[in-house]
Design a protein around this nucleic acid. Structure first.
Lengths: 198, 198
DNA sequence: GTCAATGCTTGACCTATGTCAACTCTACAA
DNA sequence: TTGTAGAGTTGACATAGGTCAAGCATTGAC
């Protein structure tokens, strides 16, 4: 975990041995079992999460159906909308796998910023990156068909496909589980046209 | 324009008369004619835009077809991905209407931050808002059908529908212009079932 | 005014997706 | 072992959306 965290941070800023220890002293690593619900619809939460290991997802429950809208894996962070709006959450957050997360809130953030001013610029860079990436994902979603979106995932996040159940992936792609199942059947048919038995 | 700008800023920070004059002295207002292309695919740009009046959009050209992915109207800002990635832009930015924009770049931003430190926290708040809103828009897009997306726009941004051509709106909704046309026909049929001439 | 260009609509047709249902398979608990 | 619950698949059917093409309306250039 420490390795994952400091490798990630090292990409942007350099930290002394002492600084690293100060960070670890904050005791920010938390383990969660697969299926743990971190945030429920209607709750007011002030916690932000950063994934060091595992995978978490956000989902809505609409007419009794779960609609998964986003997955977060290693070195990805999520600030739930309700932290910012201070209103009741519209969605759920849960662990797709056993996960190790950094859990923080704004007071802890302020503390870190005071001790490590260099984190401010880091935070700014990451935030800009986040916006740019999110917009790009959204753009790609709009200009693609469900099949293209699935093939894109196969190319760019092949590992993730192995880790998440298909019914969660389906709504992430904007379709039903049945359609995803057929879409996959269609693709593998095309890839392996039936070998004719002479 | 000044009014729009200072009303917007006033929602977050308070500015003295002198400070306002300093800001205006930067000469940051620029007028553009409808149709003006601010950024082309392949270009390297360092400019960010903030809309004071009018409307701009981002679009890709794919197989010769324009795919509009986002609209920006009054008090909305856009930092093109290429500003952040320093790579060639993948998309275009153009004015949907005659528009008045604030054009800035990172050096001007640094200048403003130095003169007005309070802008740093403002920027931080706006950025967080942006992420939360973008994620929410994306979530809504995923869990909605094109028809629901259109009806949502009718409810939440009715003014925008009057301002943008339908073929641009169509790709924004993730469909073709023909489908949008039929979708609209379907809706108005349902709303006004044919009055039977006795 | 005429003409061309563009945008919007409509029709015909095909395909993909949604929906409802049945079925299999697996994991897990009693 | 059996039974149950959940995930994934498959079938049948209805419908929405994509594609290609034609037609109409509006705009703007000349």
């Amino acid at each position: 975990m420490k390795k994952t965290l400091f490798e990630f941070l090292g990409r942007y800023i350099s930290l002394s041995h002492e600084e690293k220890n100060d960070i670890l002293a904050l005791d920010i690593f938390h383990s969660f079992k697969k299926g743990t619900v971190l945030l429920k619809e209607g709750q007011h939460s002030i916690n932000e999460y950063f994934v060091l290991q595992g995978c978490i997802r956000t989902y809505y429950i609409i007419d009794g159906e779960e609609k998964t809208t986003e997955f977060y894996t290693e070195t990805e962070g999520i600030m739930p909308a309700c932290v910012h709006t201070k209103a009741a959450s519209e969605y759920y957050i849960a662990c797709v796998e056993d996960s190790i997360l950094i859990v923080s809130d704004s007071s802890m953030e302020a503390e870190v910023f005071e001790k490590f001013p260099k984190f401010q610029s880091l935070c700014r860079i990451l935030t800009e990156q986040l916006i740019v990436n999110k917009q790009r994902s959204f753009d790609n979603f709009k200009i693609s068909t469900p099949e293209q979106r699935y093939l894109d995932m196969l190319q760019h996040r092949p590992g993730l496909l192995q880790r998440i159940p298909q019914h969660q992936l389906a709504s992430y792609l904007g379709i039903t589980p049945q359609s995803l199942s057929r879409l996959r059947a269609r693709i593998s048919e095309r890839k392996q046209p039936l070998p004719l038995l002479s």
